[in-house]
């Protein structure tokens, strides 16, 4: 839309906003609490590169902002792999210069050949894991072991369960429960899953992507759909909390770091990614966020007590790879969005 752009340039000049907007500070967007609290400050102290951290609640939120701004304003973003794929498809992701990220060598071989981006062309895995059930052993009548325990919960658990609200993971619970692919696009199957999830909605306390572990700790909820690492937050605060991968399986989710093509600080952005992949720094991240990181020396250096306290930290790369990875479903994303809207709108 050339006329718009000319107008925009004119407006920008008139308003005196041109140019300087791209500050020298590295802008990193990540989920809240998904890095060591001192990570950015330590990075700045060690490299002399000024950096700041912004938070996003969900993948969709940061994607919305990136698409609105044409990928401007951010240098490094943390997004889950299907969204990294989209950033790449849209031409918003910068091809990575491996020479500037020597620490890529620290990644497990599995993490360098992930389906969504073999060879880490545009994304670097930061953390990975499973999605399963997180529950209070003292509040559930019997330990859950199936997605059905969440979707059609025991009478005692009515109004005490939560599910993730974002399109992909909400649908994943329904798809996995029926033994289907987490990237299923068949309309009939999606319709079936929709009906299952609408039935499940009537038993829910809430949809929650950000505070479900707090609800578990306070006892507001007894059984929640959770990412393994986030269940660990609850385990850290309550002895009664357990995590289980349902017998039907899980997805393999991979959260990645992506450098934006519009970044004015690409050197610094690469330096940040490389710094994060340093065995010590990545281990420090894992210990803080209680998520598995795909970094071999970092995981090897983890305290054994940590894995004992948080058993899901011990899931091996081989087991992770036995689950199907969430992929960008392309055109079918419309059907996904609509299905989720239908679930949300149901009474």
């Amino acid at each position: 839309m050339p006329p718009f752009r000319t107008l925009g340039a004119a407006a920008t000049l008139v308003l005196g906003l041109g140019g300087s907007a791209a500050a020298q500070t590295l802008v990193i967007s990540n989920w809240d609490g998904y890095m060591a609290p001192d990570a950015v400050a330590t990075f700045t102290a060690q490299t002399g590169i000024p950096a700041e951290l912004v938070l996003h609640a969900t993948n969709e939120e940061i994607m919305g902002k990136l698409i609105a701004s044409g990928g401007r304003g951010y240098d490094v973003v943390f997004v889950s792999s299907p969204f990294a794929e989209i950033l790449n498809t849209l031409g918003l992701a910068e091809p990575l210069d491996h020479a500037k990220i020597p620490n890529l060598a620290n990644l497990y071989p599995e993490a360098r050949a992930l389906e969504h981006d073999p060879g880490n062309v545009f994304s670097v895995p930061y953390a990975w894991g499973t999605t399963g059930l997180c529950y209070r052993a003292d509040l559930v009548p019997e330990a859950p072991d199936s997605w059905a325990d969440l979707l059609s919960p025991d009478e005692a658990l009515r109004g005490r369960t939560t599910m993730l609200a974002t399109d992909r993971w909400l649908l994943a619970a329904g798809l996995l429960a029926r033994g289907w692919s987490v990237n299923e696009t068949d309309p009939d199957k999606l319709a079936q899953v929709r009906d299952d999830l609408i039935a499940a909605k009537r038993t829910l306390l809430a949809y929650d992507d950000t505070t479900f572990y707090a609800k578990l700790v306070s006892g507001e909820a007894a059984l929640v759909q959770a990412w393994d690492g986030w269940c660990n937050y609850a385990i850290a605060e309550s002895d009664a909390v357990r995590y289980v991968i349902p017998k039907e399986g899980s997805d393999l989710w991979v959260d990645t770091m992506v450098i934006l093509k519009q970044s004015a600080n690409k050197e610094a952005a690469h330096a940040f990614v490389n710094w994060m992949l340093d065995a010590d720094n990545h281990r420090w991240a894992a210990e803080n966020i209680l998520y598995k990181v795909p970094n071999a020396p970092a995981m090897a250096a983890l305290d054994a007590e940590l894995i004992e306290a948080f058993p899901n930290m011990g899931i091996t790369p081989a087991e992770l790879l036995s689950y199907e990875q969430l992929r960008d479903v392309g055109e079918a994303q419309r059907a996904y969005s609509r299905t989720v809207t239908e679930i949300m709108a149901a009474q």
């Binding site: 839309m1 925009g8 340039a9 920008t12 308003l15 906003l17 907007a21 609105a68 701004s69 401007r72």
Partner: peptide
């Protein structure tokens, strides 16, 4: 305003 600023490529911030 979001659409306006975004389509005109006016960088957003406090201003």
């Amino acid at each position: 305003l979001l659409s306006f600023f975004s389509l005109l490529r006016i960088p957003m911030g406090l201003h």
